[in-house]
């Protein structure tokens, strides 16, 4: 920076003074120019000071503008956050009220569900009991039906044996006939035993 304001060497100044400009009357060679006396040596320092002042003012103006912009931006952002905060508070309050209602309903419904679950368990258990009783009744019915059919066979067999005995009269001494009678008796006894077993199992 200092180079721009350095004074030229004395011999160059002298040379410049000795060469008259075209169309101009040369003055005394030793007379200094009127302007050159006020610019040196204080001019460079003054120029530097002036430049610094301009720079400082520029910086200050820029800083002021930047600060103003920043402040405006922050104010805008802050306003937005405040607005949204208020909206959120309002929403939160509404939702809090709804949540309280919902919780109350849930509590009430849970109580109802608990009651219904107990009733359902009781009903399911009762249903199982009834189905079980029905199944056992079906088993018994089928069993006794089969037993009755078998007893009917037993009666028919005895009937046949009796008929044979009556029709054959005194000739009913055949060992084969007696064997048939014994088989029928065994069969009927087994039915009686089966029925006794059944009744004993039911007690």
């Amino acid at each position: 920076m200092t180079d721009a304001y350095d004074a030229p060497p004395a011999d160059e100044i002298a040379a410049e003074e000795t060469v008259p400009e075209p169309g101009r009357v040369a003055g005394p060679a030793t007379e200094p120019a009127a302007g050159s006396q006020s610019e040196s040596p204080a001019d460079p320092a003054r120029k530097r000071g002036h430049a610094w002042r301009v720079l400082a003012v520029t910086v200050l103006v820029v800083a002021l503008l930047a600060s103003s912009g920043l402040a405006a931006y922050l104010w805008l952002v802050s306003s937005r956050w405040i607005d949204q905060n208020e909206t959120l508070r309002s929403e939160a309050t509404d939702m809090g009220a709804e949540l309280a209602d919902a919780r109350e309903q849930v509590s009430s419904l849970e109580s109802e569900v608990e009651t219904l679950q107990t009733q359902l368990d009781t009903t399911s258990s009762r249903l199982s009991d009834v189905v079980n009783d029905e199944a056992h009744a079906g088993d018994d019915l089928q069993y006794l039906g089969d037993l009755i059919d078998a007893y009917a066979d037993c009666v028919d067999s005895y009937d046949e044996v009796l008929t044979d005995a009556l029709t054959s009269g005194y000739t009913y001494t055949n060992s084969n006939a007696r064997s048939v009678q014994a088989d029928v008796a065994d069969y009927c006894d087994s039915l009686a035993a089966a029925y006794e077993e059944y009744t004993a199992g039911g007690e």
């Binding site: 920043l70 931006y73 922050l74 805008l76 952002v77 937005r80 956050w81 949204q84 909206t87 959120l88």
Partner: peptide, 8 residues
């Protein structure tokens, strides 16, 4: 710098 709130 803080940014503004996102849309609700």
């Amino acid at each position: 710098l803080p940014s503004g709130p996102s849309p609700m």
